[in-house]
Design a protein around this nucleic acid. Structure first.
Length: 198
DNA sequence: AGCACGATTAACT
DNA sequence: GTTAATCGTGCTC
């Protein structure tokens, strides 16, 4: 079984971490099963100066995890019904994280189909709220150390991707932020993957 | 205590 | 293309 990505992987510049997470495997264990997918889309949110980042108004009880240790899950609730999964990056005290936006389903596809109420593989994890539903990620996961032995959620290294396979674009859903923050090309995705968000 | 809003999705026309 | 769903959080009173 591949090793978990260690804390030092996440304690680096967020753009590097977001780029290198492409191709890695996000693994969830529940009810004794492995449910996992390959990361095909991720976005960087970088510090209190990034006016699209939840850290932009300083520390609150909601975003406190983002200011903490790298390699910890930051999970928040939005639109009255959706959970979003992020991984904290950089150093303690600096509010930064990578939002995981889409996965290519790999293991536990039956479980994902059941949880999503959808059959098509491309409908299971092709969006940030879809993948949390498929992997049963919610409030209970907020603050969990993804690098710790025994946690029920973690990351494993994948095949390295050539830079020609990696696309970049502005982040999705941050039109509320002023320039230049709404236009920063801080979204990374695998080109030609049918599993990126729509 | 009340209120506006959101790093979205699915189901519409 | 549009819109309803739905509620925790952070802010104001």
């Amino acid at each position: 079984m591949p090793a978990r990505l260690p804390c030092r992987f996440f304690g680096r510049p967020t753009l590097i971490v977001a780029r290198e997470l492409l191709g890695c495997r996000l693994v969830r264990r529940f009810e004794g099963r492995r449910v996992s997918g390959r990361i095909v889309e991720a976005e960087a949110y970088i510090g209190e100066g990034d006016l699209a980042c939840h850290g932009r108004f300083g520390r609150t009880s909601r975003n406190a995890v983002m200011f903490g240790k790298p390699g910890v899950a930051y999970v928040y609730f939005t639109y009255g019904m959706h959970w979003m999964f992020n991984i904290v990056t950089e150093r303690e005290g600096f509010a930064a994280a990578v939002l995981i936006r889409a996965l290519e389903p790999v293991e536990g596809i039956g479980v994902m189909q059941q949880r999503r109420g959808r059959r098509a593989l491309s409908a299971l994890c092709s969006g940030p709220a879809k993948l949390t539903q498929a992997l049963r990620i919610d409030k209970a996961v907020n603050g969990v150390d993804l690098c710790a032995r025994g946690s029920s959620l973690w990351l494993e290294a994948g095949e390295p991707l050539a830079s020609s396979q990696v696309g970049r674009s502005p982040r999705i859903g941050v039109d509320f932020a002023p320039e230049p923050w709404c236009s920063k090309p801080w979204r990374f995705f695998i080109k030609d993957s049918p599993f990126v968000s729509k």
